[in-house]
Amino acid sequence: MSDASRPGPAEIAKRLQDEFGDKIVAVDLEAVDPFCQVDPMAVDEIATFLRDRLGFNYLRCLSSVDYLDKKKTSEELGVVYHLGAIPDARHLFCLKVRLPRDEPTVKTVSAVWPTADWHEREAWDLMGIVFEGHPNLTRILCAEDWEGHPLRKDYVSPDTYHGIKNNVV
C-alpha cells in the first residue's frame, strides 16, 4: 500500500466509529501511537473488522497494564493491542481496553490473530486478566500451582513455596 492510499489514524478511527458507534469509548489521535479505547466485550468483533476491512493482518504486541497509582485515583487494569500489517510496515494502529480490577474480563482475540494465544496466557498468568473464549487459558510462565498474579502492583510475594524459604534475609 502506498502512502497516499493507506488510511491514516483519523480515517481508521472514523470508520470504527461509523461501524461500531458507542462501542468506541474514546479516541486519541495525538498520542505517539494513535489509539481507540473500546468496549472490552466488543474487542473481538472490532479486531475482526480491523483485520478483514482495514488490512491489519498482524498483531504486533498484546500488553497488559496495571493503572494502579500511589494516590489510588485509578485501580483499573488494561490491555493494549498494537496492530500492524505485513508487508506494509507503516500501517499501524492501536487498541486499548480498560477493565475493572475486581472482574477484569475481556473477549479473546486468539481466533482473530493466533499469535494472541500465548500473549493472552501470559497476560492471564502475570496480570490476572481473563480472556473470555480463550481455548486454553492456563499459566504459561509461573508454576502451575502458583498463587496470585505477580506483575500486579499490589502483589505481595509469598514467604514460602513448597517449603522453600522465599524471604530476603
Binding site: L141, C142, W146, S157, I164, K165, N166, N167, V168
Partner: peptide, 15 residues
C-alpha cells in the same frame, strides 16, 4: 533478582 524477583530462588543452598 534478590529483591524483586518474585519467582527466583534466593540461593540454591536453600534447597
Amino acid at each position: 533478582y534478590i529483591k524483586y524477583g518474585y519467582h527466583v530462588l534466593k540461593g540454591v543452598d536453600r534447597l
